[in-house]
Design a protein around this nucleic acid. Sequence first.
DNA 1: GTATAATATATGTATGTACATATAAATGAA
DNA 2: TTCATTTATATGTACATACATATATTATAC
Lengths: 127, 127
Amino acid sequence: MFQAYQVKSRISQVLKNYALTPEQFNVLRILKGSHPNALCVKEIGGRLIERNSNVPRIADRLEIKKLVKRSVSAEDRRETLMNITPAGLNLLEVASQELEQFQGRLVNLTEEQAANLNQLLEAMLQD
Amino acid sequence: MFQAYQVKSRISQVLKNYALTPEQFNVLRILKGSHPNALCVKEIGGRLIERNSNVPRIADRLEIKKLVKRSVSAEDRRETLMNITPAGLNLLEVASQELEQFQGRLVNLTEEQAANLNQLLEAMLQD
DNA sequence: GTATAATATATGTATGTACATATAAATGAA
DNA sequence: TTCATTTATATGTACATACATATATTATAC
């Protein structure tokens, strides 16, 4: 948990250059993954690590910055669909590039060590 | 980070039985560690994983529940000293017991695997 | 076909983090 | 000694999580 906190803090510092929080960045990445197709709020939430993320409120902030657009689904009017805007794609592109370089310098493991770490983490929790 | 989130969530569920958050629990544990000596706000903050924890506000909530007491330091009147109360010690005792049992069942690694995981995590980050 | 249940989203409230700023007290330089 | 600087804490604001509840829409039971 200490290392997870460290990683998140440092990612946060990099994203601050783009006025993004890690959560906002993750939502943008998910939307880019489905682009040009929209995703509804529930689908986005299901792809986030934090199962209790409040996607409507993160969407509020992204919408104010015009990085996403919301619309009501025609098939199911309960659903709010979200799309990343061209401005969102541009910002995500530059932020992702800096973040990838940063992470490359940050992480200090061989491929074998990384695979080993991953395996231990996956085996760690009961249930 | 996914596993750190899982662990924190499950700990959170257990502590909810005692109306404690993980952060409040950690502050109580730190205060118990120094008991019967008090600790100032800065010392407590320095022992938490989250470097930016806002100890005064966590202390507000613990004080309302009468689990800690605050006082002004005589040696340095800028410092706010904190002490765990008898009620705090009692609550911590029962909560800790349930949490330890829970964590024993939760974590699924041999001693060797745990040592290996720990070593990989420590080596993981540059700087 | 209508009433009820289930679902998707939004929103209110409590808690916490991140960070800027305010305030009081101690320290140090002149 | 006096005044500027540093330090410890508190507090304001923005953002996020956790969870309860409200609302609108769809699905289902009869």
